[in-house]
């Protein structure tokens, strides 16, 4: 199957999503949400956004406004594994900045994570590293979520093990 077929199949799926939500209150958000979930790498490509604009008649600038407002929407391909480091006050005082720096060293992206506020995907699309303001698990600080599982009282050592486990899984698969 060549690339254009993939694209046209995706666009057909988007058309189906649009007709499903057409006329409903807040249709644009539902359409964008499902369009993102359709994509293998969990993001909204420019082609997809163009297509939504064309079919719904919503101006491009407004679509851009919406997808940049909500942190749920991604404009870049997401890594296979999602690592979220909590940067809330409690986690910060328990050393979450150091954990973020460790991730930078382990994945070779120190500069991208500088400043303690990150949204980064490794070039091989394996890991997406992001930060949140709080998980609501302050008693267990510092916490790091890996592929939706929250790990508590994380230290540099446990982080290294967790990452190794995920990477192994990756090699096996």
């Amino acid at each position: 199957m060549d690339g254009t077929e993939v694209v046209s199949r995706e666009l057909q799926q988007i058309d189906a999503v649009i007709s499903k939500h057409k006329g409903h209150h807040g249709e644009l958000l539902s359409i964008l949400e499902e369009t993102q979930l359709l994509s293998e790498q969990q993001f909204l490509s420019e082609e997809a956004l163009n297509h939504v604009a064309l079919r719904t008649g919503v101006p491009l600038s407004r679509i851009y406004s919406v997808v940049t407002f909500y942190s749920f929407f991604n404009l870049k391909p997401q890594g296979k594994h999602k690592i979220t480091v909590c940067r809330g006050t409690a986690c910060h005082t328990k050393g979450s900045k150091a954990l973020l720096d460790d991730l930078g060293l382990m994945l070779g992206c120190e500069t991208a994570l500088e400043g303690g506020d990150a949204f980064y995907t490794t070039p091989d699309n394996q890991f997406t590293i992001s930060t949140v303001a709080c998980f609501g698990q302050c008693a267990l600080a510092p916490v790091v979520a890996i592929d939706g599982v929250i790990h508590s009282n994380v230290t540099s050592g446990t982080l290294q093990k967790l990452l190794a486990r995920v990477s192994r899984r990756r090699v096996k698969a």
Partner: peptide
Amino acid sequence: VHAISDSQR
């Protein structure tokens, strides 16, 4: 024309 809009938050 809708050439511009606000973005981010």
